[in-house]
Amino acid sequence: MFRSKFILFIYCLLSLGSFQQVRGMSKPDIEELEQLIEKHQLALSLTRAQKYRAYAVLARELELYGYLEESLSYYGRSLKNIPRDQDSLEILSSMLSVLYRKDREEALKFYQQKFKKAATSSTSPVKSKILDFWKKVFSKKVFKPSHVGFYGQFFKDQDVKTLMQQKKYSVALSFLDPKALKSADINHRLEYDVLSKIAGKKSGFFCLSTLKKYPNSPSVTMDICRYLKGIQLKVESLETLKKKAAAQLPHLSYLVDALFDIPVEQEKKP
């Protein structure tokens, strides 16, 4: 009987993806499914292991569809039902990555209070890799210049930004390679341009090709480029640009802040 009910339970979960052949999964679908499960008390008759597995399936699917809140809720239910002989690393890692997408502070709290301890005691062969990854994500330290795989750019970006905020400009510059910046996005080109200007470079900035294409753009990035080139900004002053960046593009503030550290002798007031 348990087996029949479990199949039925999962069957209803599966029907979630097919409620409407066209619309796919939506919040009303999830609510409808929950009502169905509650109405017939399907979950009550399942074993812990069955609930753990069923809720994990649904949580993963919700995660893939971007329903972060609901996904967390189902991961939580799965975790509550985890059998003693099961490793919790997958569920905890999934919860942490969903939290990271949703709220970085909450993710850090979860990492410190629950994840580290539980993951350390995991028997999973992927434990060390996953622990190492999240340790780096939440660490304020700057890492060695070995940034590899899917995760390379992520850690490099964090490092360059952190180093610039710490005013360790020459170290940050050493993380970037000018040989291939032509096709990088404007943020990365500006990072290199600002750092090399601080180091004494006077011309040949990578941002200039974009400025040439959009000479009238009042965007923060183009004003940073104008400042490096020593031409008139679209705003009144560097102070105004700083305020504008803080208000509109706070993630670029570190670039504007670094402009204040260009040595006076080479700075041309635009």
Partner: peptide, 21 residues
Amino acid sequence: SFRNADSMTLSSIEGTNGYCW
């Protein structure tokens, strides 16, 4: 308009692949 990380494949820093995914 921007490649994943051209800078990184040529970089002196060990082969990294940016935000490819």
